[in-house]
Design a protein around this nucleic acid. Structure first.
Lengths: 134, 134
DNA sequence: ATACTATATTCAATCAATCGAATATTCATG
DNA sequence: CATGAATATTCGATTGATTGAATATAGTAT
């Protein structure tokens, strides 16, 4: 497979709103477990796992197993730069682009132990799940 | 349409080897006419026009009519940066990425007046058409 | 061992992208 | 105005992507 095809594969993996959303979330954090991403994006778990598999096969994310949990991170900081450039291009075209969302821990709706701990006692932060990531 | 969908559309337009190739050629020049791109990529003209239409609809290229000829250019210098980042990521993954091709004028095989002028008398330059852009 | 929890995979139906072939449009020139 | 040259569009067949639903796997704790 030649370079143009390889480049195209990278962009193909980015060519999906939910995958863009996931990568943007990962770009804000060093890493996030699947349950976090499920809660933040607001889609069903198997669906999120499917998208993560696509991203992993394209080499854009790496994963780290930790007991039952699997933590995902960007495999290369330049993946975040790609997203940033995409946003910059949209802005130059006159589109309004809101600032990136922040993944808070604990995260409301997330079921992993770290989040369950602070589920009721946590303070309000300016984070809304499911910011139309589809 | 939300920002994630818009971003995905940009990446979707980039998710094709021939379109990547065209954009890379445009990134090397200020602009190029369709006949140049046809000669350089080595595909049929209607096919190249189809890809250019996709790129134009995605807002990645702009065109300028000049008599019979239509000259295309990147609509935003950041489009070139996207390609560059894509290559950098591939390199980081251990892939060999050759330096970008240069569009010479006159270009062998191109039929436009500018190229026909120097078609026989021109010196050899290190440019090969159809560098597997598919 | 059993049951439970987090994550991954498979399958099938639908929808969108690809690409070759034919044809249309547009401008320039004799 | 008829011809030719450069570019664009349309159409249809094929292929590939998407996504919901069901199910599988693998680690943990009782």
């Amino acid at each position: 497979m030649n370079v143009y095809q390889q480049q195209a594969k990278i962009f193909q993996a980015l060519a999906h709103p939910v995958r863009v959303r996931i990568l943007e979330l990962l770009a804000c954090e060093d890493e996030a477990c699947v349950c976090h991403l499920v809660a933040a994006v607001g889609k069903r778990q198997p669906y999120i796992s499917q998208q993560l598999t696509t991203l992993r096969k394209a080499g854009l994310v790496a994963d780290r197993k930790d007991g039952l949990l699997v933590h995902y991170r960007l495999s290369d900081e330049r993946v975040g730069e790609l997203l940033q450039l995409g946003q910059d291009i949209l802005r130059a075209q006159g589109m309004e682009v809101q600032p990136a969302p922040v993944l808070t821990i604990p995260l409301q709706g997330c079921t992993c132990p770290r989040c369950q701990a602070g589920q009721e006692s946590r303070e309000r932060v300016g984070f809304a799940t499911n910011q139309d990531g589809d």
